[in-house]
């Protein structure tokens, strides 16, 4: 709220809050974009049949590979 005894303080805080709100919304959009990008790449990789698992220190045998 603007304080009439301190000229300019209300306008300043209003500007700061507006700026911070704009910055937060832009940050939200960026983070949303990153999430969407990771999701899209995951879908593409899974659709292409790429193994997404990391090495878990166990070797798996491929069924039928020893025949």
């Amino acid at each position: 709220m603007s304080d009439p005894r301190k000229p300019g303080l209300g306008a300043d805080s209003h500007e700061i809050y507006t700026r911070r709100k704009g910055r937060n919304l832009a940050m939200l959009a960026c983070l949303g974009g990153v999430v969407l990008m990771i999701f899209a790449v995951t879908i593409v990789k899974l659709s292409a049949g790429i193994d997404m698992r990391g090495f878990d220190h166990t070797f798996e045998t491929v069924p039928g590979a020893d025949q």
Binding site: G8, D12, R19, R20, G22, R23, A26, M27
Partner: peptide, 20 residues
């Protein structure tokens, strides 16, 4: 914006465009 903030940056005062 106050005169002080023109010369000394305060953490959290920047616009998103400044980070860009």
């Amino acid at each position: 914006m106050s005169d002080a903030s023109l010369t000394t940056a305060q953490s959290g005062d920047a616009e998103f465009g400044d980070y860009v």
